[in-house]
Amino acid sequence: MPAKRQASRVRRQRLRAAWLFLIPMLVVLAAVAGWPLMRTIWFSFTDASFANISEYGLVGFENYLVYDNGAWYGVLADPTWWNAVWNTLFFTVVSVGMETVLGLIIALTLNAQFRGRGWVRAATLIPWAVPTIVSAKMWGWMLHDQFGIINEMLMGLGLIAEPLNWTANADLSMWAVIMVDVWKTTPFMALLTLAALQMLPSDCYEAAKVDGIHPVRVFFKVTLPLILPALMVAIIFRVLDALRVFDVIYVLTSNSADTMSMSVYARQQLVEFQDVGYGSAASTVLFLIIALLTISYLYLGRKQIGGEA
């Protein structure tokens, strides 16, 4: 084979243009994400305070873990932090699980042919469009311990004898948070699942129909395996999103320990307790958890992302 020539001038110009187009975006990303992230990690090794963030001293790993006078201190030794980790994981698994199942049911329903399908689909988008804060407030009102319509409904149906204090009761408040999140994000799951369903080939269904296979069996043997890749993408996006949950919990139950997530914990340390060093350490741990998950996802889904130009 003859020697390979260098890319032509035209091609080189094009490459140069591509990088020129990319650099502004990369610079902005570095300014709003890269640099702040590095500073957060840096602060996690300092004793900076929120009120005066420019004066600080280095304290090493003290914010993470330190042994002092016979006791462990630092984020990793803080039971409140581990409680927040547990809350976040519980919230993530339960709400994403429920959203997936409900989303699947809604998607299967919307996949059927019926009059007014467009309207129903539009209606399912409403919760998605409602700001999280607003949905938390709306549900806060519906779940109100004295005047809430949910209590009224449940009492009317005879399911409960007296009103429940949804947002303050330690056993119920996490479920209240999950309820709001499920309401708000199920549409997202439903739409992504619906899109996957609509790309399925119809011939294997016809074959199954001809063979007289029960619809439930068809769903588990044909539909589910076929939409699984798309469903997995949606689930992973939702999981990564749920792990950083903040708004719903903050608005619905404030800084209550029963529902505190990692993000709420970190922000409380940072802003309310003004302890930038400690809060940054918590943020960094959260970042590492999500980064680890993201990297493993990107690694597994690597081939999909490259694509073709």
Binding site: L26, V32, P36, L37, A48, F50, L270, A291, L298
Partner: peptide, 24 residues
């Protein structure tokens, strides 16, 4: 690689950049 960076940034927990952004 650039696409990965872009996707990676979209996964950032907002709270992780909070103190750094506050300083900026």
């Amino acid at each position: 690689a650039v696409l990965m960076i872009v996707l990676g940034v979209s996964m950032f927990p907002q709270v992780a950049v909070l103190s750094g952004l506050f300083e900026v």
